[in-house]
């Protein structure tokens, strides 16, 4: 019961989109694709809470025990609580008077700048990271370096200023060698993912059973 039922449910659920794809009937499409898609998004929303509960448990434990860095855990919990409350009990976007709902306000003035700045930090470390990556003197590293430099210079006005051919070379790299490599990666990864899907569909892999 504990193992057989989930396996059966997973097999049946995995066959639904396949049947929906192979039988292009309106009712099949309605039930096997559209409705189930909608249902799964709803289940995923409930699942989100599981992750949040785990984060809250870990940080609450740190605050209670006054572990090292508990103040940061407290800041995390407070910001999580405030933003969740805005999201759960308020609206989003603009109010009728043109002011922003608190949820959107915090998104615009806290979440968005924090995220953008966090990612922009990498720009400062690119030089040292590139140096470390390109220090290995072999053909592969040289190709990586040449590809990166040509793409970066070729996509800005500096490339055109150096030589009119530079942007064209950058474009050629993107259009041919890069397309070829990306295609190889996509085909390889997709075949691997499809094989993994089949293993789950026939019950060889059972990620939904966890450690049990």
């Amino acid at each position: 019961m504990k193992k057989q039922v989930p396996i059966l449910l997973a097999v049946v659920a995995s066959l639904c989109p396949v049947v929906g794809f192979l039988l292009p009937q309106p009712w099949v499409d309605e039930w096997m694709n559209r409705r189930l898609d909608e249902w799964m998004v709803i289940i995923a929303s409930f699942a989100l809470v599981l992750g949040v509960v785990s984060v809250v448990q870990v940080n609450l434990h740190k605050v209670r025990r006054r572990s090292r860095g508990w103040g940061f855990s407290l800041a995390l919990l407070l910001s999580l609580g405030i933003m969740s409350a805005f999201g759960l009990f308020g609206g989003q976007g603009e109010r009728a008077d043109g002011s922003l709902h608190p949820f959107t306000w915090v998104f615009q003035f806290a979440f968005s700048p924090l995220q953008a700045t966090m990612f922009s930090l990498l720009a400062f470390y690119v030089a040292s990271a590139s140096y470390r990556a390109f220090r290995v003197r072999n053909v592969e590293a040289s190709l990586l370096l040449v590809g990166a430099v040509l793409i970066m210079i070729g996509r800005i006005p500096l490339g055109q200023a150096i030589h009119p051919l530079v942007p064209q070379i950058a474009e050629w790299i993107m259009q041919f060698p890069n397309t070829a490599a990306q295609r190889g990666i996509i085909i390889g990864a997709a075949l691997g993912a499809a094989a993994m899907s089949i293993r789950v569909m026939v019950g060889i892999e059972r990620p939904y059973l966890g450690k049990s």
Binding site: S45, L48, V49, G51, V52, V55, F72, S73, A75, L76, L77, L78, S79, L80, G81, I82, M83, S84, A85, F86, G87, L88, G91, Q92, F103, V106, F107, A110, F111, L114, Q115, M118
Partner: peptide
Amino acid sequence: SIFAGVSFGYYIGLARL
């Protein structure tokens, strides 16, 4: 820490809204 907290809160809000 605030970024992590606000991110979680944001996705909870999005899930509801």
